[in-house]
Design a protein around this nucleic acid. Structure first.
Length: 270
DNA sequence: AGGAACTCCTGATGGC
DNA sequence: TGCCATCAGGAGTTCC
């Protein structure tokens, strides 16, 4: 799987929701890797144990499990980082390497968090989690334009800034900039209103397209044996360095912007 | 306070 | 074949 961004996280959240909503957490195990746990592991165990999972959804790149226990509400927050996976498995299925949390559920199955690279994070919250920024899929045109006003940072870096829009990562930043015809290094605050409106539409279209591809594979995503497969959006620029642009055949260039590999067409993007 | 650099991690990859 | 260096990247931290 690609590094999980908004569409992938939404697909995982929906798949996990279908499998575990309405179930109760009976027992919780956590690994001893401190970096994985944003809340103290003991607090995670105490909050989850005995709680009913009312539903699972996405906020930004974070998976939110809404919990209730004796009238008390709480949330279990899962950020997949780069390599995090959520698996719903039968207990007899061997634990994959790098398993960091296991929730034993009231239907006898287990929800497992597996993360090789440990950029993922688990936490619990009693406050309602709203995410660091604004949802790109529902932001109004005026609000979108206002986000970038006065910003001297490259538009690519601004797209990756989760406190502005949350959910956009490296792939969809590059892909949306290509579709909008905007160079990644352009200063965010210097883009015209028309360019920003184009970017908003391009971003929404590319995210929704990826979600629709994921939607068709939701039922296969979380499996007793783990991940069976995942959708692959056809990239127009991402990781296509040196290959011909699909519009004008100019070789796709790769540069670094905001510390991240960035791919663009020097002719189609201005 | 905004912006950029640095850091955490390990699997995959490529060179020799 | 095997070893080692390099790369990938989300987001928290630190520094200017």
């Amino acid at each position: 799987m690609e590094v999980p961004e908004l569409p992938e996280v939404e697909t995982v959240a929906n798949g996990v929701h279908d499998r575990i909503h309405g179930l109760t957490v009976e027992q919780v195990w956590t690994s001893n890797k401190p970096q994985t746990f944003k809340s103290p592991p003991q607090e995670i165990v105490e909050t989850l144990t005995g709680a009913r999972i009312d539903g699972v959804r996405r906020v930004g790149k974070t998976i939110v499990a809404d919990l209730s226990r004796g009238g008390e509400k709480a949330q279990f927050l899962i950020h997949l980082g780069m390599t995090g996976r959520l698996l719903v498995s039968a207990p007899e299925v061997p634990h994959p390497p790098h398993t960091h949390a296991i929730l034993a559920l009231s239907n006898g199955q287990e929800l497992r968090f597996v993360d090789a690279r440990r950029f993922g994070r688990l936490s619990v919250s009693k406050e309602s989690y709203g995410g660091p920024g604004t949802e790109p899929l529902t932001i109004s045109p005026d609000a979108f334009v206002a986000l970038f006003k006065g910003r001297r940072t490259p538009i690519k870096a601004a797209l990756l800034n989760q406190s502005l829009l949350h959910g956009v990562g490296n792939i969809y930043a590059d892909e949306s900039l290509f579709r909008a015809g905007i160079r990644p290094k352009r200063h965010a605050g210097r883009l015209t209103r028309a360019e920003l409106l184009r970017l908003r539409i391009a971003l929404i279209e590319v995210l929704e397209h990826a979600i629709s591809l994921g939607g068709s594979s939701v039922s296969d995503y979380v499996d007793a044996d783990g991940v069976r497969g995942f959708f692959q959006l056809e990239h127009k620029v991402y990781t296509r360095t040196g290959e011909p642009c699909l519009v004008c055949a100019t070789p796709i260039q790769k540069i670094t912007v905001g510390g991240r590999s960035t791919h663009f067409c020097p002719v189609c993007q201005r």
